[in-house]
Design a protein around this nucleic acid. Structure first.
Lengths: 220, 220
DNA sequence: GTCTATAAACAGATAGAC
DNA sequence: GTCTATCTGTTTATAGAC
């Protein structure tokens, strides 16, 4: 004898289903390559509900970005806080390696990243509303804190252009294996990039990070 | 009293104009985000000419890929042949640095790369007909030869998984500055990535390449 | 809130004039 | 070869029933 089944639970469930379906489809086919009918169909609702819940297709895009921003922070934050507030050079170096490994494993094998990674990469490549959200909520704060770690690990001055750029090269090394996944699979003769392949990649990146830190340190 | 103005020159000129416009628009807005009317408009012709010359929108996409494949080979080939047929470790290492610098400069500052870079990145990210063209004509042969250089420079066995993966990390370091250009500009406080900024980036990448090679060498 | 039905604009492809 | 005009299907957004 319940008056209503799920007074506001249903509303939230529809919203969540739409965001999940949109993230999957935007990631796989791009924003312009995906119709709101397709999204609504996969979410088990009607196309008009997108306008109702998010104001339109663009609103749904922004909602996807905010969801992703929250999830990415949740993955990376713990690794950063692990390092403690004022780490010594060795701890900083080890944290950087861990961070690279966590990021690589997340992007390459975690099933939830299967569609959010391409969505992110598409959106970050072009300057739009989503980029601003990502810069403010995830990329900006993360990059800043990683740079601090980098400076401690190498003994460079904090906030130097050099350490900032080097941190970007570290990120680039990781992301390429997702962006160029098809190329990598082809050239490596891999059927897929699973856990074993991701471990091999992670080891290579960790070795590079160690080499770059060691070279910077000895240059001081 | 010429019978025809430019018997086959006009036809070729229309084709070229369509490819140039398509590359610019596909790069900027994506394939699905660009209409054939828009392409034809920018090329100074009509929308029907795309079906006539390329069989349809997809044919134009493939034609763009082939044009880009030729241009990229033209940029990278000279650097590779400079190294000679059987280089010593030092020459190989120097060639790798040059190659990275050439690639970075091309991607970051050459105006012709302004639109072909995003086009390439979009297409390489998804497995389609364009990826196959790129793999066969550019990426495959290039990556193979760079891996050989890498093996010589580090003293590793040629065609090892390790050297192949490390070469990918080198490429990733370069590409990120194009993919994440907006992020880089924001975090570095740069108005744009011009010649001076590209030089700073190139120097950072070259330093990393040297560090990784040195570490691999001493590990032997 | 959720849905159906529809409006208004736009897509790519093509027929036929010149 | 180049163009205009049009065909057919699809897009997003929205009005209105329930």
């Amino acid at each position: 004898m319940t008056v209503r089944e799920q007074p506001e639970g249903r509303q939230q469930a529809t919203r969540d289903a739409l965001i999940a379906a949109a993230m999957r489809l935007f990631g796989g086919q791009g924003f312009n390559g995906t119709s709101i009918r397709q999204i609504a169909g996969e979410a088990g609702t009607n196309s008009a509900s997108i306008a109702y819940h998010f104001g339109g297709k663009d609103g749904l895009r922004v909602a996807c970005a905010q969801t992703i921003a929250t999830r990415m922070s949740a993955v990376l934050e713990p690794v950063l806080t692990n390092a403690g507030p004022d780490p010594d050079p060795q701890t900083a170096a080890r944290t950087l390696e861990q961070l690279a490994a966590t990021m690589a494993q997340f992007i390459l094998v975690r099933p939830e990243a299967e569609n959010i990674a391409p969505f992110m990469l598409r959106e970050v490549a072009e300057a739009g509303a989503v980029l601003e959200i990502m810069l403010e909520k995830v990329i900006g704060p993360m990059h800043g804190r990683v740079c601090q770690l980098w400076a401690v690990a190498t003994g460079q001055p904090a906030e130097s252009d050099e350490s900032r750029l080097t941190v970007f090269t570290m990120i680039g090394q990781i992301l390429y294996f997702r962006i160029g996944r098809e190329v990598v699979k082809c050239r490596m003769g891999w059927e897929r990039i699973g856990s074993a392949e991701a471990d091999t990649i992670t080891a290579t990146i960790a070795r590079n990070v160690r080499a770059i830190i060691a070279a910077e340190r000895s240059a001081q």
